[in-house]
């Protein structure tokens, strides 16, 4: 990881989703304070959201996890991380992605991000299975 710091996770989502995901991942994993933080777009202008995200990104390397691949959260995330190789954006966040993140956030971005994508996609299953 650049600067030797583990990445911080910033969950940026609609309504109360971010807070709920951070609460769940903290309770399951015992992740240390600040390893994953929540940011909601609720009631915020695009500029306010970008400003709040920029303050978090200034604190060190981060992965911004958004709920949807587009829309106000994803746009703020992509704008904030643009041209900053120490940051990355991962869309379609789910709990398995965040759990894997908190235990592997020390990995370099080029290893960590593909791993998280694989974990997230691989956790979506049905029962019974259909082909």
């Amino acid at each position: 990881m650049s600067e030797g710091l583990p990445a911080r996770g910033i969950v940026l989502a609609h309504g109360g989703m971010a807070r709920g995901l951070v609460d769940a991942v903290t309770k399951i994993s015992g992740a240390e304070d600040g390893a994953v933080v929540a940011l909601s777009n609720e009631g915020k202008s695009p500029q306010t959201l970008q400003d709040e995200l920029a303050r978090l990104l200034d604190e060190g390397p981060a992965i911004v996890f958004t709920d949807l691949p587009s829309g106000s959260c994803a746009i703020a995330a992509r704008m904030g991380c643009r041209d900053h190789p120490r940051h990355a954006v991962v869309t379609g966040v789910n709990l398995p992605i965040l759990l894997d993140f908190v235990f592997n956030r020390h990995l370099p971005m080029n290893e960590l991000v593909p791993r998280l994508l694989s974990k997230g996609v691989g956790s979506v299953k049905s029962s019974p299975g259909y082909s």
Binding site: H14, S45, G71, S72
Partner: peptide, 10 residues
């Protein structure tokens, strides 16, 4: 809408 193309619109 300040957010232009986003969830509520789409």
């Amino acid at each position: 809408d300040e957010r232009l193309i986003h969830g509520q619109v789409v």
